[in-house]
Nucleic acid binder design. Structure first.
Lengths: 220, 220, 220, 220
DNA sequence: CATGAATGAGGATTCATTCAT
DNA sequence: CATGAATGAATCCTCATTCAT
């Protein structure tokens, strides 16, 4: 009883409806608990059609992961302008990230919660996306180091850990912001930016990160 | 066929064996995918005995969550000495946290991945534990602020966000460290401590956090 | 392996086959002892199909009760002509009742034995049907009283008791007739009619009830 | 947690406790739904002891049936004085019957509802008892016929049917009286006595059965 | 005697998946 | 294309029953 049954739609449209339904169902119920029946129902199509187009539950879930992963990285990329200074890029990226996850809570749940919970076919899929973000952050850190004329560059492993920590914090904050009424994407981004750029120690001494871009009131 | 079948053991022992098997199975397969058959098998007992002692799959999972949550918070608490400076307490807590999660990867998977993925009975259970850690970190930040004679205290929501970010980063790093060969608990703790205390900005300027305790070469 | 497996039948037909099998199995084994496996097998379908159409064991049993109850009351109603004198109506009703129960022993067992033995969902269901019969008999007694120009009408509770006794006797006789070879529906009806209308006392004095309708040799 | 655990009681007493618990449980839950666990618990003993004394669930149920059957027939017999006129004997027997079933509802449920519902081992057991009552009633009818100097005696099959109807009516009324608040054993007996002895026909003409014994206000 | 420990066997229910139309 | 009909294979859970102490 999900959507109205429209007969004879082009395949691409039908597939999108199915993926929409699947993302929503997987995101809310989890991979195992979601039933193909419910998904087909929510998509407004018959079950055999789902199998015809998407092959199997596993493939369907993989397709969901791929679509949502692509959407997330695209959103982050679209939010960032390569030429700007590193901290500005980070700030822009974080805002895009938090905005997108807030607008697509089910997709985010699929990526962050569900996909990692279930065995190898899926964890690998999502790990690749995550890696992409980590690499993006890693490069930003490297750029920032260059910009700061920092001589003895940080060891790679150290940088990897920092990027990992930053991405992990972002992921947690995204889930937290989704679950906490009254926390906007912008606030989440600001909190993390402070945390990441200035560090707690500096915050204690009242020196929050203040942005390096144009004075457009980046946060607060 | 998991363990050797030792007949006639006292209830407490059997119960522990069952919980061990359950944590391992739930941690690796997830709540839904784990079967009571596999758990009973791994524990070296028959299924009815599992039901006799632990009641139901739901109750068994809850018991796992409770046990692992208690163990984790106990480990962190045991690693921290209340009298020391805030940054030292944070450092000690992080080391205890990463050490414990590294030593109990399945328990950590149950808490961080599985329990949050499945509906209300369990999410609430684990949220309470997480809250405990967040509160601990929140208080540390407050103490640090006092120690730094910081006058206009940070707004509560800000502090909450920071604590959330820190805990989230720790959680992510724990999972990352578990999955990355060659990353020790100490290194994970050091990375996060740098990140949290100094911030990326300072790191760029070569001013990593260096510890406030006795000069015992806390890290690096 | 009960029936021949005819594939692809319309739903209504399959549902009837399932109910037939269920009535037979429940009637012979009882609610608890009957297994869904046996019912599905006897119906010549797989278990999931039974669940798809009938939902659950409880619902299946309820459906059996409803169908058999409706069939029984319909049979009795069809056997009785409202315009005739009360004793003739009673006679016709009894014959229809005994005929139907003799032709549907399993259905009768479900109604009389099994449904009343198991808790509330079912007992209520069958009680309603029984009440219908009791009311029917109660009204007949009242009509008979009017026909006999009996002045001080019998107290209601008394009439209720009498109707109850009559229905109870009929139920018992139906089961007895089913179990005793050589006892026909007609004989059972005649015995009860004598018993009910004339009473033992009159029978002793050789005055059996002889019918009030046309001289068609109603019995004997 | 049923009864207080009294250690070291003579076997006869323990067995009685078990049977009491079993009758109650079987009467209320039914044979299949009753669990040995619940029975042992209610009896205040351990399960192995039940098996030691009563062998198996089947044997236990059979023992219940036997005990309750014996108690019922004994009660009826004790209520009847062989020398008295037939209708007085019937009246006394009915009163004893309804009194006993009212005082032992669980025992009556075991005999009338549960035992007949389940396969051969039990149905036969209870059928024997029922037969005993039917024979008793059959003989009463024969005696009454002699007393009434009725010449052409009723055919045997006819008498058997009448006895069956009377016993059936009694059984139904017993269950009805148990379920209907405000109906006493005496009232039930009176209703049935009217019905059986006078017949509905006579009742219409205001000639209820009035008893043949001493004028002690037998009913009403 | 009495019991805590333990299990084999079975039963209700669900689900991903496939044909025949 | 689209679907109603159908199922093999699990999965959770319960219960009568038995030993070793």
């Amino acid at each position: 009883m999900g959507a109205v049954k429209n007969k004879r739609m082009p395949r691409a449209v039908r597939e999108r409806q199915m993926l929409d339904a699947a993302v929503r169902t997987f995101g809310q119920r989890g991979y195992r608990a979601a039933s193909m029946d419910e998904i087909a129902d929510l998509a407004g199509v018959s079950k055999p059609l789902v199998y015809l187009y998407l092959n199997s539950k596993e493939d369907l879930f993989t397709a969901c992961i791929r679509r949502e992963a692509k959407a997330l990285t695209a959103a982050v990329r679209a939010g960032v302008q390569p030429g700007l200074p590193a901290d500005r890029q980070l700030w822009d990226g974080l805002r895009a990230f938090f905005t997108h996850t807030a607008e697509n809570p089910d997709g985010w749940a699929v990526l962050h919660l569900q996909a990692r919970t279930h065995g190898e076919p899926f964890a690998a899929e999502v790990a690749a996306t995550r890696e992409e973000l980590v690499v993006f952050v890693t490069q930003l850190i490297a750029v920032a180091a260059r910009e700061a004329h920092r001589n003895p560059s940080l060891p790679d492993r150290e940088v990897a850990g920092l990027a990992e920590a930053l991405v992990g914090a972002a992921e947690s904050l995204a889930t937290w912001a989704n679950a906490t009424p009254g926390v906007s994407a912008k606030q989440a981004a600001a909190t993390l930016m402070d945390f990441a750029w200035a560090g707690l120690g500096n915050l204690m001494e009242s020196r929050p990160w203040s942005g390096s871009g144009p004075a457009d009131g980046l946060h607060r």
